[in-house]
Computed example of a mutant assay.
Amino acid sequence: MSKQDYIMQGRNEGIAFCDKIAKEKGLEELQRVTRQRNLAGLRTLIDPRELDQDFRDATLQILDTVLIMSLIVLKDEFDFGTKRLDRFKKRFNDKTECLETGNVTWIDMIEQVREENNIKLDLRKNDVVMAWRKK
């Protein structure tokens, strides 16, 4: 398929997607989905109903990569063995579950580290995602 054909196919799929939303849920819903996609920077055909699951999946994948990096650092820099690495992994997963269930927030954890260890941490903000979540 040529580049022009690929572009045309994407446009046709986009029009069909918009038509479906407008017919099923009305023009207001189509406008809401358009605003949501623009704020989140979405350029692909993602069903809005699947968007929350996609964000959750991405968050869990990021946490998995942080866990892997943490285990490597603890092993290489601090000579953690299998038992200590496994203990860390279990505790990390417990804290992750607390975040998922809403029992604790990132701000709670940042404040705890600052109060107990006098270490300043910042949570970087993605303005596009944060703006989308405010809508």
Rank of each mutant, 00 (worst) to 15 (best):
R124S: 11
E24V: 03
L99H: 04
D64M: 08
E116C: 09
N93S: 09
L51D: 01
I46F: 07
K89C: 13
A16T: 14
Q4L: 14
M109L: 15
D57Q: 11
L27S: 06
Q112K: 14
Y6P: 00
R35C: 09
K3V: 12
D108S: 05
E28H: 04
K23A: 15
E29V: 14
F92I: 05
Q53T: 06
E115P: 03
F17I: 02
C98Y: 10
Q36Y: 02
D108V: 07
L121G: 07
D19G: 10
W132R: 01
S2L: 10
T34L: 08
D122G: 02
R35P: 01
K75Y: 04
L42N: 00
L39Y: 00
T101E: 11
E115Q: 15
Y6H: 13
N38L: 03
L99R: 08
E24I: 03
D5I: 02
I62H: 12
A22V: 10
L71W: 08
E111S: 09
A22W: 01
D47L: 07
F55A: 12
D76Y: 03
K20F: 01
T34G: 02
K90D: 14
T96F: 09
W106G: 05
M69C: 04
T59K: 13
E50W: 02
G10H: 07
M8V: 11
V113I: 15
E77L: 11
R35M: 14
R133N: 05
K20A: 11
T105Y: 10
I119K: 11
